[in-house]
Amino acid sequence: MSPLFKKTLLWLIVSAITGFTASQIMIYTFPYVIMEIANKRLFAEQGVNSIIHAPRVTHASRAVVRPSPDLVYSICGFDLSEGPLEVTVPQTNGNYWSASAYASNTDNFWVLNDQSLKKEETKIYLGTAIQLASLELNQDEESVISPSNTGVILFRNLVALPEEFSIVNQLRRKTKYKPVN
């Protein structure tokens, strides 16, 4: 084996190992990085574990691409490191409503819409499997196991006509969000 061949082979091996390692790191970390960027944009001011009731979407809304002007969004970043959270959602005005939860790797692991809201108020407990196992919940209370300690809950409230905004806005502000004592 000539020294030149040996050198070329070594160069190719180093290059291949670097390329493979870098691609694996990128493919596994991209979703987390994208979620982190979104979190920084959305929760920079208010922080996590509190609900942000975003104003109506306009041409000036730039936080997330392709927003729907028919919806008003409320959003909450969650952090379960201190314990599980209790979310109380009110009955809607009959318009489409949904709550969806996203893990720190962007997976949408849970969704609930207004057709499943049977009472004036529905309590939802969000936590890790271990945290929720220690809670004693009533049968009509929903428990949601989060695969990660951090993530996002997004509430979508349909405003079909401009005159509906006022009532939808009042109702969404009845959503409560607090740590479980």
Binding site: I34, M35, A38, S98, S100, N105, T106, N108, V152, L154
Partner: peptide, 8 residues
């Protein structure tokens, strides 16, 4: 994550 963040 790149094409449908927060989609349902």
């Amino acid at each position: 994550a790149l094409s449908g963040l927060f989609a349902l």
